[in-house]
Design a protein around this nucleic acid. Structure first.
Length: 485
RNA sequence: GGCCCCGUCGUCUAGCGGCCUAGGACUCUGGCUUCUCAAGCCAGCUACGAGGGUUCGAAUCCCUUCGGGGCUACCA
């Protein structure tokens, strides 16, 4: 076990779509472990499946990691001594190793067609035996090979799985054992010469001197194959990387999280106004916990606290409600300046204002009164729109609530008293309104202020009324009250 | 079907043989506070899948069983 080597961890997604929540959780643990140990974090793109991986998704994966605050030491954009970090640019390396395996007799050419293999599997299913390659081409005679070649068959390269078993210690699950009777000979290179995941991961992990493989649980059963490649490469067994198979992130319906059972793409969360630190904090809690009833951690703290020993072996359900709660906590913890920086794009993109000097000043003044009332940044436009809107109008539903005579009376009095007010501050506004509506008219605050709130903000839900009126200004406030009195 | 992994409140988890009549967080319910909405505070609901062992003593160890999931590709 490479315990005395400096830690090198890699996150190696196959961008066949946008990185989803599960991928991100894996990346986060990889990153946190590398940072915790002072090791190296490698970002590698596994794009051997050219049918499904696209440049667009690769770029998105890069952007996503950056946005979330996970920096890498080797990989796309930053390079490194073990590059290239796109498997599609390492094809010659895989070809070399495949040739070596062939020469050593660890691997062999297999001429079986897809149909033939399917027929074998079908028969195995019927006979109720373990499915897998039957070893048909393991020891072909030169004549047989000539025959296949003459038929125009193109061979794949298949790894020979010797009898016996593979035992390894998973850092999370303990000792795991696979009998080779259930690990059939597997394909390393397609008939067209392109490498398969099984070849590429193993070769790259060895060449990039990866010491710890933290990856999804779905890859657990492919580990014996990976170890087989190490052996063929001549890696000593005490130099294999250590494996840690992370539990799944599940959707509401108990199946692996996917588009069908929840929002999985990070861009969705980004647009909805989730903070990267909230996403990472929440995801860190899925399958890991710092203990001692601790839940709130920053990225920095995560790096300090994260250990593989505290990672769970059981899968976790994704819960949007909890994410929202954490997001709200993180938003409240923002400094005014940070909160402004995060908010501005939502205001501008939401069409509330264009980000001009005056808009910015008013925004900065208004943000403090809403910071503790939101759980997502996307809620900001609706809350502050009344301050900026050009052609103000009370929403129909709310308008009905202030169309009765009692409301007219409230608004009329409020308008008159406010018109006489000299110092337009929220404290003074409240003082005047309380004197007039609560004491003089004897109304309940929620009734009296409710009417004014609708008149001024256009909605029965708004930031605190008096602060809102101060921000809106005397002229506009009176104008709005007058228009519905 | 076969192989492998997993199993504490609705959810995320603490727990690693006695501190557990099982703790925290989110959700939900009720209350307080209150100009709406939040925030904050208080209270409540609800869990060791089941059955056997081992032990003075088990959520913690062992076995069985049931349940969930993954893999079983010239996907990763």
């Amino acid at each position: 076990m490479p315990t005395n080597r400096p830690v090198r961890v890699r996150f190696a997604p196959s961008p066949t779509g946008e990185l989803h929540v599960g991928n991100i959780r894996t990346a986060l643990f990889d990153w946190a472990y590398a940072r915790h140990t002072g090791g190296t974090f490698i970002f590698r793109i596994e794009d051997t499946d050219t049918e499904r991986v696209t440049d667009e998704y690769i770029q998105k994966a890069i952007d996503t990691l950056k946005w979330l605050g996970m920096d890498w030491d080797e990989g796309p954009e930053v390079g490194g001594p073990n590059g290239p970090y796109l498997q599609s640019q390492r094809l010659d390396i895989y070809a070399e190793w495949a040739a070596k395996f062939l020469a050593q007799g660890d691997a062999y050419h297999c001429y079986c067609s897809a149909e033939e293999l399917e027929a074998v599997r079908e028969a195995q299913r019927k006979a109720n035996v373990a499915p897998g390659y039957n070893g048909h081409c393991r020891s072909l005679t030169p004549e047989q090979v000539t025959g296949y070649v003459a038929d125009g068959r193109k061979p794949v390269v298949r790894m020979r799985m010797p009898d016996g078993e593979t035992i390894f210690t998973d850092l999370i699950r303990g000792e795991v054992k696979f009998d080779h009777n259930f690990v059939p000979d597997f394909v390393l290179v397609r008939a067209d010469g392109s490498p398969l995941y099984t070849l590429a991961v193993a070769v790259d992990d060895v060449l990039m001197q990866v010491t710890h493989v933290l990856r999804g649980e779905d890859l657990l059963s492919s580990t014996p194959r990976q170890i087989r490649v190490y052996q063929a490469m001549g890696v000593k067994d005490d130099e294999y990387p250590l494996f840690a198979h992370l539990p799944f992130v599940m959707g509401q319906d108990n199946a692996k999280l996917s588009k069908r059972n929840g929002e999985t793409s990070i861009s969705w969360y980004r647009e909805a106004g989730y903070l990267p630190e909230a996403i990472c904090n929440y995801l860190a809690l899925l399958g890991w916990s710092p203990g001692e009833d601790r839940e709130n951690v920053t990225m920095k703290e995560l790096a300090e606290l994260f250990t593989v020993e505290r990672v769970h072996s059981s899968p976790a359900r994704f819960d949007m409600k909890k994410l929202e709660a954490i997001n709200g906590d993180k938003i409240r913890a923002l400094t005014p300046e940070e909160f402004f920086t995060w908010s501005l794009p939502f205001l501008v993109n939401g069409g509330v204002h264009s980000g001009g000097e005056g808009d910015v000043a008013l925004t900065k003044a208004a943000l403090p009164i809403i910071q503790e009332r939101i759980t997502k940044l996307s809620e900001i436009p609706a809350l502050l729109n009344f301050l900026f809107v050009k052609d103000f109008a009370v929403e129909a539903e709310s308008l009905a609530k202030i169309s009765d005579d009692d409301s007219k009376k409230i608004l009329g009095l409020a308008h008159d008293r406010l018109a006489d007010l000299g110092e337009w501050s929220h404290a003074k506004i409240e003082e005047v309104l309380r004197a007039a509506l609560i004491e003089e008219l004897g109304l309940k605050p929620r009734i009296a202020f409710g009417a004014v709130r609708i008149a001024v903000t256009g909605s029965h839900i708004s930031p605190p009324l008096f602060e809102s009126m101060e921000l809106l200004g005397k002229e506009k406030s009176l104008e709005r009250i007058a228009s519905v009195r």
